[in-house]
C-alpha cells in the first residue's frame, strides 16, 4: 500500500480541474471499492480527490420529462429508501438492497457503484497474471477457478464479470449516465456505459480520462406495476450474483406491450438483448414465451469448466423472473431470492 495526498473538490468544475492537474489522481466517492483495491495493492493513487463537498451531486431530484435524477454522490441506501424510488422505481430499490451489506450501502454512492471493478479472484491477487490489471500478462481464469465468471460476451483476454446488482436495474430501466469533463458535458445511455473486454480488458467503461459522473437519470417509466429482481448466489445474502435478472413489463390486455430484461453475473457488463425484447412484444407473458426470449438472450453463450452451469441457470432464471414480475407484491423477497 502506498500513501497518498487528499484534496476536496468544491464543485464539479474544480473536481475536473484537479483531476487534470494532479498527477496520478483519482476521484474518491464512498471509497468502499477504491479503498479496498488500494489495500490489495491493485491501485496506487498519488492523490485522492474527495467529491463529498459537492452538494449538487448528493441530490435526488425530479426531471422535467417526468423522470428522476440520481446524484452521483447520493448514497445507495438513501437512493433505495427515497420515497420516489420506492414508489416509482421499486425494481431499482430491490437491486440496490440485494447488493453488498447495509453498512456498505450506507457509504457507497450511485456513481461509485458504476465504477466498481470485477471481483475476479485473479484480478484481486496481484501476484497472478491478469490482463485487466496488467495488460498482456494473460488470463488465468479461463483455465482456473471461474465459477463467478462470464459465459457470454467474453474474450480470450478476459472472462471477468461486472459485479453490480444496481447496474442491472439501471440497464433494464434505460437509465442515462450524465458526465462532465474538460471538454464539456455528455450523456451516455446506460447500456453503452460499460463495455465488453475485447482486446482491452483494462478498460471497464466508456468514460474518457478525467471525466466525472454527475448523475444517473431515470426515464419516467419505472415498471412499478410489473417488475422483479431475482438474484441467485452461493449464499443467501452478502454475496455476488452467480446469475441475476431484472425484468420490467408493461402489460396491456394480458399481453406484453414492452419488456425490458437485463441479466447480471454473466458478462463484463449488464446483458440486454433487444431482439429478445422485440420477440416478447404482443405476446402473452407465459413460461413458453419467456423461455423463447431466454434462448435469444443466451444465444452465443459459452461456459468454462466451473461455470457452464450458468447457461441453463440463466435461462431458467429469466423464465422464473418473468413470471415473478406478474405479481411483484407476492414474489419479491429481501435479498432478491426466488419467490416461495
Amino acid at each position: 500500500m502506498n500513501n497518498f495526498n487528499y484534496l476536496r473538490a468544491d464543485d464539479t468544475e474544480h473536481a475536473v480541474a484537479l483531476i487534470g492537474k494532479e498527477t496520478n489522481s483519482r476521484f474518491l466517492a464512498g471509497g468502499t471499492n477504491l479503498i479496498d483495491r488500494w489495500k490489495y495493492n491493485l491501485t496506487h493513487p498519488d492523490t485522492l480527490i474527495d467529491l463529498a463537498n459537492i452538494e449538487e451531486l448528493h441530490q435526488i431530484t425530479e426531471t422535467e420529462n417526468g423522470g428522476l435524477r440520481l446524484g452521483a454522490m447520493a448514497g445507495n441506501a438513501d437512493t433505495a429508501y427515497h420515497p420516489l424510488v420506492k414508489k416509482r422505481y421499486p425494481l431499482l430499490k430491490n437491486t440496490i438492497l440485494a447488493g453488498a451489506s447495509a453498512q456498505i450501502r450506507n457509504a457507497a454512492t450511485n456513481g461509485g457503484n458504476l465504477m466498481q471493478r470485477t471481483r475476479c479472484y485473479y484480478y484481486y491477487d496481484h501476484e497472478s497474471p491478469c490482463n485487466k490489471r496488467n495488460p498482456g500478462s494473460g488470463c488465468p481464469a479461463t483455465e482456473g477457478h471461474n465459477r463467478l465468471h462470464a459465459v457470454i460476451g467474453h474474450s480470450e483476454n478476459c472472462i471477468a464479470t461486472h459485479p453490480s446488482d444496481m447496474c442491472i436495474a439501471l440497464a433494464a430501466l434505460d437509465a442515462v449516465v450524465q458526465v462532465t469533463g474538460a471538454e464539456g458535458n455528455r450523456s451516455i445511455p446506460f447500456t453503452e456505459f460499460h463495455r465488453l473486454p475485447g482486446n482491452n480488458p483494462s478498460k471497464d467503461n466508456t468514460l474518457r480520462p478525467g471525466e466525472l459522473i454527475t448523475s444517473i437519470d431515470l426515464p419516467a417509466e419505472g415498471f412499478a406495476e410489473n417488475y422483479s429482481y431475482l438474484k441467485l448466489r452461493d449464499r443467501n445474502s452478502y454475496a455476488f450474483a452467480l446469475v441475476s435478472v431484472a425484468t420490467g413489463l408493461r402489460l396491456k390486455d394480458s399481453k406484453i406491450e414492452k419488456a425490458n430484461i437485463a441479466v447480471g453475473g454473466i458478462a463484463h457488463k449488464p446483458w440486454r438483448v433487444q431482439e429478445a425484447e422485440d420477440f416478447l412484444k404482443n405476446k402473452r407473458p407465459d413460461r413458453d414465451n419467456f423461455a423463447q426470449a431466454a434462448e435469444i438472450i443466451m444465444d452465443g453463450a459459452e461456459g468454462f469448466e466451473h461455470n457452464a452451469f450458468k447457461i441453463p441457470l440463466t435461462k431458467r432464471a429469466i423464465i422464473r423472473n418473468g413470471m415473478m414480475a406478474l405479481n411483484p407484491q407476492e414474489t419479491q423477497r429481501p435479498g432478491a431470492g426466488p419467490s416461495r
Binding site: Y6, L28, G31, T32, D36, L48, D50, Q103, N106, A107
Partner: peptide, 13 residues
C-alpha cells in the same frame, strides 16, 4: 447516524 465500515473509510474524509 448511519452504520458504516470504519476499515473502508478514510479518517480524513
Amino acid at each position: 447516524g448511519k452504520r458504516i465500515l470504519s476499515c473502508l473509510t478514510l479518517a480524513v474524509a
